[in-house]
Design a protein around this nucleic acid. Structure first.
Lengths: 143, 143
DNA sequence: CTTGCTGCAAACAGTTTGCAGAACT
DNA sequence: AGTTCTGCAAACTGTTTGCAGCAAG
């Protein structure tokens, strides 16, 4: 599936007249190898450790491209950093964010998604994306 | 109800050993007179127009206090500014954010709230707050 | 060869902080 | 009087941009 994602990006790049570069390949590889909601800074550090010389700006610019290409999704939590998560087609999860230990639990709920569609329809609104975050304390931090 | 809110803040201030100052009164008044999801900068400008001399920092610091006091809630949309909305007890609304004209439609849905509680319970999670934003195009912008 | 991409540094925007003086209790 | 609060400016943080050189097509 990693190959599939690379193809997705290449197709996107081709359709936009963008070039395929060493940096974009590296950043995509490393992004795909992560599993968390990674911040740009964190990704930049990972990239730099195996590949010094790649700059901040390139990582920022490249992640925006991934988002445009539909490979990544920007998420804003409450920590002042932009984070990105993988987009898996047909799957959407929301987050339980623990304000105690900052851990994030993902969940998915079809009924909520369905209700959202209804609400949107009621307002003549065309949904593009959505996000939901629930803040509180996780099982560990409650005690 | 404005008086009620002022009382809420005064009680909060008293319980924390905070002082009641001219600036906090003014900022609270103006905040309560707004109805939108106002950004700190916007509020600062409003404050300054009727009351030049009040600084940026004071508005930032004061809004944080309001949030702590339970009068305001921080919301993060995708425009790089922190915004605040009023907290009305017992009422919670979520947002339909139009990416075309940046308008925001508020809605409330009890069923969704209930589902959230269930999901949280399933994960042993204690909810403190939550937010949900649906992005897309409003009826006007679809055409 | 042409044009897009990169790396760097500087610029930016929003927010926070240090501090001396002012204001509350 | 004692302490918190304010205003200002400077510091910070995360992100974006301008530009000269580099590299892909």
């Amino acid at each position: 599936m990693i190959l599939e994602k690379k193809k997705t990006f290449n197709d996107f790049a081709a359709s936009k007249g963008l070039r395929s570069t060493r940096q974009r390949d590296i950043i995509l590889d490393i992004f795909l190898s992560t599993h968390e909601h990674i911040s740009v800074e964190e990704l930049y550090l990972k990239v730099k450790s195996s590949n010094p010389g790649i700059g901040h700006a390139t990582v920022y610019r490249t992640l925006k491209l991934f988002a445009e290409a539909g490979l990544a999704r920007e998420i804003l939590l409450h920590d002042g950093q932009t984070r990105y998560e993988h987009v898996v087609k047909g799957e959407h999860h929301d987050h339980l964010v623990c304000t105690g230990c900052n851990s994030i639990i993902e969940f998915e709920d079809e009924t909520i998604e369905k209700l959202q569609s209804e609400i949107a329809a009621r307002h003549g609104f065309l949904i593009n994306s959505h996000k939901m975050e629930i803040y509180g304390l996780c099982a560990n931090c409650r005690r």
